[in-house]
Design a protein around this nucleic acid. Sequence first.
DNA 1: GGAAAGCATAGGAACATCCTAGGGAAAGCC
DNA 2: GGCTTTCCCTAGGATGTTCCTATGCTTTCC
Lengths: 308, 308
Amino acid sequence: MLSLHQLRCFLTTYETGSLTAAAEELGYAQPSVSEQIRALEKSLGVQLFRRVGRGVVPTTVADELRPHAERTLAAAEEARKAVQAVKQFETGTIRFGMFGQARLYAGAQLVADVLARYPGVRVELIGANSADVFEQLRRGRLEAAIIAVTGVASEGMAITPVAKDELVYISADPAHLTLPVTAHRLALSTLVMYETTWRANDSIRTIMRNLLHETGRNPPTRIEVEDVESAIELVGLGLADSVVPKGAAMQLLPRLAPNAGWVSLRPKQYDTFAIVHRADATLSPAARLMIELATARIQEIAEPINPR
Amino acid sequence: MLSLHQLRCFLTTYETGSLTAAAEELGYAQPSVSEQIRALEKSLGVQLFRRVGRGVVPTTVADELRPHAERTLAAAEEARKAVQAVKQFETGTIRFGMFGQARLYAGAQLVADVLARYPGVRVELIGANSADVFEQLRRGRLEAAIIAVTGVASEGMAITPVAKDELVYISADPAHLTLPVTAHRLALSTLVMYETTWRANDSIRTIMRNLLHETGRNPPTRIEVEDVESAIELVGLGLADSVVPKGAAMQLLPRLAPNAGWVSLRPKQYDTFAIVHRADATLSPAARLMIELATARIQEIAEPINPR
DNA sequence: GGAAAGCATAGGAACATCCTAGGGAAAGCC
DNA sequence: GGCTTTCCCTAGGATGTTCCTATGCTTTCC
């Protein structure tokens, strides 16, 4: 079976015109190179060098083989280099999961952070929805992710909370914002909620359900939309109120609903952001990098949770 | 150390998405493939597949490596194919030595024979002069040759005579052609000789020296030129007579000296054509082919010598 | 909950690699 | 012409790889 080692010995011998010189250059003993050449000749079924007196002379078959051997070795070297480049984040792709509010207000920043540090890499920020992210983590397609923690089954997953963001009540009606909103007040309000498609696994809805449980009511949702921006615009139009993470409120209210304001819930409720990955996984440098940067970004916006 | 085998295992695993399937396809047991992948990962210092439940999932590094692995394996395959093609005379170069009259009137035919049979090959017919051919044979640069046998030192060389060509006396003066030319007559004539540069090793001169030895004279050479064509033209102009192999006379006289004719020497003298190669060499198929074809061509023109 | 699928580990046989030591032939040097 | 050097080969043996079978463990699927 043809091997790179044989081709390397062949090429060096061809170039130096001598087995001894080739062995010298490659750092082997002369009989080792001799053996490799013989093995190559045997496996190809042709003579590559004529042994003539002292020294060896390449045959025309060797002339023919040489450029191919060079190409093959160059390709192998390219392969090695490509991997090393990826290893040092000079190139390649970094894939990371990010779902929900986390992506909404830290995604672009996070990508910018990575690109600033490693201009050569491609970044894939995966996360159509929470369940999907979990599924991809479970299947190994995603190595790690940062998500808003929900009730999604998490066996086999290591979940490390890194920050929490207060959920605030937003409204265009100043009368709704005079006091912190209790569960009872919440139950009486008219709400617009978002990320409709994934509501079953949505962390905010889960929190609200728990909060309203004592009142015996369901969340009084009047409007369901897909994106939080639309929800906030609707709040700005005075059609409904909503509950959003404080970070999102700070960032989006001035732009999308300048006449609206916010107030805390009572008791205060928090959306928790956590790093998630398979419990059994050893994280790659790329994943560790993303976790570090993502954590830093999230903790700038939301309140850090320092793991014990 | 990176190996083709590892790359092959890697690629097949990448494509099938499973070590078991890859092993199946490659005809190995599953642990063998597993071991190769692990060795490759270790030598590159990166993880190529995440082992997740049942099955393996390629990492982004594997995505990056894949095209390079493909290129490397393709290049190796190209190398193997190129050599096989040469082996079957589909391509490559056939180098053969041919000196003196042999080349003069069988060279082009021989090349044509080879090209007719193997249209893809390149043919190199080497032979500036006899000593050079011998030197190249000795140094292994030439594998075999067909030459006019001379007094050149031939130790270590296997010499197989295949044909002899009568040396004839040519002249434009019909009076010189009435009877076979004896040594004495030869000593009294005015000659033009050719291949001046190599006269020391020239077979015809050697023969003539031996012939004239009894007369105690040297060959009566009046003119020395480099090529036999010029010599024959000079004979045609009546400036001198010459001694050439009969084959050359038959081919060149009508064209270059139509008024000239030829007559035998007495006793008849012969130039011997022989296959020469290193005594210790095992001949390649290409060399055997050339020997076969060259022998056939020479024996069409000159008188065959059948080796016992 | 049990069967099937798929990877890992372990142990051992076969083979490849690489070394040192020494032989023989050609080339070069008095 | 003999002597030395150079260079390849062979032989034998230590070490490392490759590849196998058998088995264990985890996940997945029914």
